[in-house]
């Protein structure tokens, strides 16, 4: 966690400096836009973290380990794939929760499956998607992505 953050800041400051060197106006414009996005997202972000921290305290770590841990096997992966497919939460909100679950004993395989299905499969947005792509094509895309997401989850679980 910690070295990653330092790396991010070093890379970030370097990129901002290079950008400033080449184009002051564009850089100012871009940085301002970024700050604006951050301000807009910060309160929903904090709200979701409050809810997550209350739930995480209520749910004992043993339970997380039992249902989402390394020994949960097919059940854990299947459960997280289904939950990931039917929920519609912005990814950036899911990462802090995923990181807390990992610290509390969830396995990489389960977390990776949950994140990938969440990103790639959209049951809630299927009606909208089918308006653009047609019902059949949207269905095929979601089904293919569902299996691709499980493959990704299993492979990450095997690597990490």
């Amino acid at each position: 966690m910690f070295p990653n953050i330092i790396l991010l800041w070093i890379a970030g400051i370097a990129i901002v400096s290079i950008s400033y060197y080449f184009d002051k106006e564009k850089t100012k414009q871009g940085v301002n836009k970024g700050i604006k996005i951050f301000k807009g997202l910060s309160s929903p972000f904090v709200n979701i973290m409050i809810i997550a921290s209350i739930i995480l305290v209520l749910v004992p770590p043993e339970m997380i380990e039992q249902y989402l841990g390394g020994d949960s096997g097919f059940f854990g992966v299947g459960l997280s794939a289904i939950i990931g497919s039917v929920t519609l939460i912005p990814a950036f909100i899911v990462y802090p929760i995923a990181s807390e679950l990992l610290k509390r004993g969830a396995s990489y395989m389960v977390i990776a499956t949950f994140i990938t299905t969440l990103l790639m499969v959209g049951v809630v947005t299927y009606p909208l998607e089918s308006k653009y792509l047609g019902k059949k094509v949207a269905l095929i895309r979601n089904v293919l992505n569902f299996f691709a997401a499980i493959i990704i989850g299993l492979l990450i679980g095997a690597i990490m």
């Binding site: 950008s19 940085v31 970024g34 951050f38 997202l41 972000f45 950036f92």
Partner: peptide, 16 residues
Amino acid sequence: SFIPIVFVLVGLLDAW
């Protein structure tokens, strides 16, 4: 500790 810099980069990306 790191989200602000991410969004600054997002803004920059958009500008460039």
